[in-house]
Design a protein around this nucleic acid. Structure first.
Lengths: 239, 239
DNA sequence: GCACACGGTATTGTATACAAATCTGTCGTC
DNA sequence: GACGACAGATTTGTATACAATACCGTGTGC
């Protein structure tokens, strides 16, 4: 164990907690750390050649953002990767839809010039999404990125700092489920893209309420479509 | 400095990070730690007779929940108490309204028996609120607690674990502004109580959309009323 | 054969020493 | 008199030692 420590104190002071956080998050999101896995500070520390201190920071953030939870029936906190369930997906998507709905509401109230620029961007992204989805063997990574970009578009241009912060803490958690979605429901992406058009329409016509509702429906429907997939997999939490 | 440490290692192992967090949060919420104040780990540690380790955990949580921010224009993170501004209040209240709106939506969809129990509780609380507000010199602390209890009612009975967690992380931040509200707008509490009745009505009639909208309006209006107060104070951040 | 207690092990909580980085104030130079 | 460089002081980042607690397997008594 001690022989393996490459450069423990020579590391270039580059926000190690964040690096550890990102790497762990990646492992979780991509399913390499299965739901239920226990995260042991010491193991992680040796794995990344850092001490427990930055690891602790990363774990606390992961926990706060919901990627890991303290396994129940234990007093001492034992962080484990949180499970993937149908109910959780449904609730999470509703919450994301709600937050993004608020952003869309605000986007529809933007002054015209800014709104026009946003609309152009949204249309471009969504058309690319449609085109990519229509391909013979759609590029999953690209599909996911385009969908992400679409939603991020109106959030960035209309949300204030607080909403943005909250969104960027909550939304990424949906990635765990979205990766399932895109893997098993690539054929239904066009449904989503059509729903996106309704969102665009709501923002374009300057009707905040409609834009918001369209976003809600998009996420709610996605959760429903996804629910069938999770059920089929028996909620095993692995894929 | 060293002579003052009472029982550094004899403390009864009672989740010190949480204790530190709660005490700091209290200081912030009650304005004893003014916006812009710098929080220095070592100072806090000596003040509470703990080491920097639990303090660090508390600070990280406070930062994640928005009570403190890294003051800009500095590379090294220098946490300071976040400011109180009109825009921030408006955005924060909209977000809380949005989250609680979702909870109210779900509450209106609850099965009848559960809904009846909830409605009874909400009515009781709101009537007490009205009664308290009508008094000659209303008890501010009590007013705040009753309003809090009212909103918590439908959240607790309808929200899932995720929504509850998010709500309990975001909502308490509004307390900084609510304390202003109740201090300077005690006379307008009845307006809020009337808006609460509309929420109750929405849940009672089983119309999720209306319940949600009523919650949105309640928070949005509150933010507007509060905005006038903050403006009057010149957004000094002290009171 | 089962329940319970006990001891070893694993893991987290806390304190503290040290290193790196920034900030602040002073002094010298132009 | 102002600007800039340098040195001391502050403060945070990291590593690590130690303490406390929870977990787990084994053994003993009934």
């Amino acid at each position: 164990m001690a022989a393996r420590r490459a450069t423990p104190r020579a590391a270039p002071r580059a926000d190690r907690p964040k690096q550890v956080y990102e790497q762990l998050r990646n492992l979780i999101v991509h399913g390499r750390l299965a739901p239920g896995s226990r995260l042991v500070e010491t193991d992680i520390a040796t794995r990344f050649n850092v001490s427990r201190t930055p690891v602790r920071g990363a774990l606390q953030r992961l926990q706060h953002e919901g990627y890991i939870i303290d396994s129940p029936s234990m007093r001492q906190s034992r962080p484990t990767v949180s499970p993937l369930t149908q109910e959780d997906a449904q609730e999470l998507f509703d919450i994301v839809g709600d937050l993004e709905g608020l952003a869309a509401y605000l986007a529809a109230e933007l002054p015209t010039p800014k709104r026009q620029a946003l609309l152009k961007e949204l249309n471009t992204t969504n058309n690319e999404l449609k085109k990519t989805a229509a391909a013979q063997r759609p590029d999953h990574e690209r599909l996911w990125k385009l969908d992400e970009k679409f939603h991020q578009g109106y959030v960035d241009s209309a949300a204030g700092p607080r909403l943005r912060a909250l969104h960027s803490a909550v939304k990424p958690q949906a990635e765990r489920y979205e990766r399932l979605y895109v893997t098993f429901l690539a054929g239904e992406i066009h449904t989503s893209a059509d729903e996106h058009d309704i969102i665009i329409q709501g923002i374009a016509s300057g009707k905040p309420g409609e834009a918001k509702e369209a976003v809600h429906r998009n996420w709610h429907n996605a959760a429903e479509r996804l629910g069938r997939v999770i059920e089929r997999m028996g909620e095993r939490g692995r894929w």
